[in-house]
Amino acid sequence: MVKVCFISHSSQKWGAEKFLLETVLQLRDQIEIVVLLPNNGALCEDLQKYDIDHHIIPYTWWVGKNISIIKGVVKLVHSLFVGMYIAYKLKKMKCDVVFSNTCTICVGAIAAQVLRIKHVWFTHEFLWEDHQLRFHLGKNISTFLMDKLSHHCVVNSYAVYESFTKNLSRREKWRVMYQPVTLHFSPKPISIVAKKNFRCMILGAIKDNKGQKDAIAAVYLLKEKYSICAELFIIGDGKSEYVNELKKQVCEHDMQEQIIFIPYVEFAASWMNETDIVLVCSKNEAYGRVTVEAFLSKKSVVGSASGGTCELLKDDNNGLLYEPGNIEQLAKKIKILHDSETLRNEIAERAYLWAEDNISWQKYNKELCEILSVQSE
């Protein structure tokens, strides 16, 4: 049986980390699995709960925000030595394949190169466009190295594919694989405010590029221009300064009863069952896990026409798209779904069927097993 080492860039439970956990749970009967993490965290707890072999080895990213050249070089040298140490550990574990779960870490590629074993690099992000991160070596050199140090480079959308391969002379190692999603429901009834009006929900990390400000402004416009008193649940965590800035925006519009802030929730699907529609207002979403979760929950989505979102959403078919940053247009799209429950349900049903046909674990597992050289079941 092939033994694969999955390397996570963090021990938290955001989109990429959830995907890693769901992937290893899907493949655990077909491959031997070991997971490396840079520190302790929520992901470690889940790996332990499911009895997945995992180890903590402190390592750093080869990307960052506004890092000086000297500091960047220090981090790269550190990654080089840690990569060699990981190679030593993986040799003792008799691993056959290394799977780096995001492009933010390079230690897996270094370890695989030292051991001369297969390396797969899965990229979930644009970097600058969605997280304001830059490669210490620059994007052109880094993508060249990603290509050279990998047997396969997998990305989660065609938008990310174009972003990373546009300056490469050859692209045969690169492929797009849409990530499936497993819906997680709370084993107990969730505690939620009783729905009084039409309810919208926006889920994810609370930060500027996720578009919570746009959602708040659109709900305010619905009230002022169309006399629609819609509710908005903002679910997620973020830096306190930015969260307070959003709360100030809500208070200025006197919408404290309409707009509710809820910290990160473990069981997103249970919360989606309590809303009418889901908003995806990200300025540049690489893929859109929340979009797929909404599809599978049979909820209509209004999303910004950018990044991977417009690959998943087809306007007036399985969702509604609006121009990023256009508050008036966003409000109008929400109003369309508010005014017609029939249309809302039709769009949600088409979205569900599209997700079932195009983003299944069966299809994904087959492709991934081919990449890992494992016979799929």
Rank of each mutant, 00 (worst) to 15 (best):
A217M: 12
V243E: 08
Y287R: 05
V35T: 04
V107G: 05
D147K: 05
S282E: 07
Y226P: 02
H55S: 13
D237G: 15
L76I: 14
E367Q: 13
R199A: 04
D214M: 08
L115P: 03
E274R: 12
Y352H: 14
P187E: 06
D276Q: 03
R289S: 09
I359W: 02
L221S: 09
D214A: 13
M84S: 11
K148C: 10
L343K: 13
E356L: 12
M84A: 13
K195A: 06
K333L: 03
F164D: 09
F6K: 00
L27F: 08
Q329K: 08
Y220K: 14
L149F: 11
H54V: 02
A351C: 02
I52H: 08
G108N: 03
K223N: 12
V374Q: 05
I359Q: 03
Q179E: 11
Y322I: 03
T275D: 03
K71H: 12
Q26A: 15
Y220G: 11
K118V: 03
H119R: 08
I31E: 07
K139Q: 13
I347D: 06
A194V: 11
W174I: 06
F122H: 15
V292M: 04
W121D: 00
H152A: 12
P38C: 04
L27S: 05
S304R: 05
G325P: 08
N317L: 13
G64A: 03
V154L: 14
D214L: 11
K75A: 14
D316N: 15
A87G: 02
S297W: 03
K333M: 10
K13F: 14
L296I: 02
V82A: 05
C251H: 13
I7Q: 00
E367T: 06
C369R: 03
N39C: 13
D96W: 02
N358S: 12
V193N: 14
F19V: 10
L296Q: 10
A16E: 01
A218I: 03
S360P: 01
L320M: 12
K283N: 14
G319M: 06
Y352I: 00
R134N: 14
A16T: 01
K139H: 10
V24A: 01
G288S: 07
I234D: 04
E367F: 03
L76S: 11
K173S: 06
I277V: 10
Q256C: 13
L183G: 08
I52E: 08
A230S: 12
G238Y: 02
F198I: 08
K118G: 01
F185A: 02
S240D: 14
